[in-house]
C-alpha cells in the first residue's frame, strides 16, 4: 500500500469515527461529506443504522417486570425438567460413576457366586456342587436383570 493511500485511509477512518460520534450524540442527522465521495455512502449507512435502532432505554418498571417474568419462567422450567429420584440416581449420562459402580457390584456378585465352581476339587462334596450349579443361573439372571434395569433408567427420553 502506498503512503498516500495509507494516509487517505487513515483520514477516512478518523472522519467516519468522528461522524459516528456526532450521530450517536445526536448532533448530526445528515451526511457531512460531498454526495459523490466514498465517505458519503458510509455516513448514510451510519444514519440508517441510527434511525432504525433509536435508543431504547428500559425504565425501572420494565426491568423489574422482566425480572419477574424471568423468575416465573425459571420456576416453570425447574418444575418441568425436575426428574424423579430414581431417574436422577440411575442417570448414567449425568452420573457415569453410578453406572460404573453398579457394573463393579454386578461383577463382584457374579465372581462371589461363581467362585465355588472353580475352587471345588471335584466330587468330594456332592451337596456343595449341587448348590453351586443351581446358583449360577440365578446369579446370571440377576446380573442380566440388573443390567436391564440400568439400561432402562439410563435410556434417553
Amino acid at each position: 500500500m502506498s503512503p498516500t493511500k495509507q494516509h487517505n485511509d487513515l483520514d477516512l477512518d478518523n472522519q467516519l469515527a468522528e461522524f459516528t460520534d456526532q450521530v450517536m450524540e445526536g448532533k448530526m442527522n445528515q451526511t457531512a461529506s460531498p454526495q459523490d465521495g466514498e465517505l458519503s455512502g458510509l455516513e448514510e449507512t451510519i444514519l440508517r443504522l441510527n434511525r432504525s435502532f433509536p435508543p431504547a432505554a428500559l425504565d425501572d418498571a420494565s426491568s423489574k417486570q422482566m425480572l419477574v417474568r424471568l423468575k416465573a419462567r425459571m420456576r416453570r422450567e425447574e418444575q418441568v425438567v425436575k426428574p424423579s429420584f430414581w431417574r436422577r440416581l440411575f442417570d448414567i449420562q449425568a452420573n457415569p460413576q453410578i453406572g460404573m459402580m453398579i457394573a463393579v457390584v454386578a461383577v463382584l456378585v457374579l465372581a462371589v457366586v461363581a467362585a465355588p465352581m472353580f475352587t471345588s476339587t471335584g466330587g468330594t462334596s456332592v451337596s456343595g456342587t449341587a448348590s453351586s450349579s443351581a446358583s449360577l443361573p440365578i446369579a446370571a439372571g440377576l446380573v442380566v436383570i440388573l443390567l436391564m434395569v440400568l439400561l432402562w433408567f439410563g435410556r434417553k427420553k
Binding site: 485511509d9 477512518d13 478518523n14 467516519l16 469515527a17 459516528t20 458510509l42 449507512t45 451510519i46 440508517r48
Partner: peptide, 19 residues
C-alpha cells in the same frame, strides 16, 4: 485506536454492500 477505527470503517463498508 487506529486499527479499531479502520476495522469499523471496513465493517460499515461491508454492511453498506449488504444493504
Amino acid at each position: 485506536l487506529e486499527a479499531t477505527k479502520s476495522l469499523f470503517r471496513r465493517a460499515i463498508a461491508a454492511l453498506r454492500t449488504h444493504l
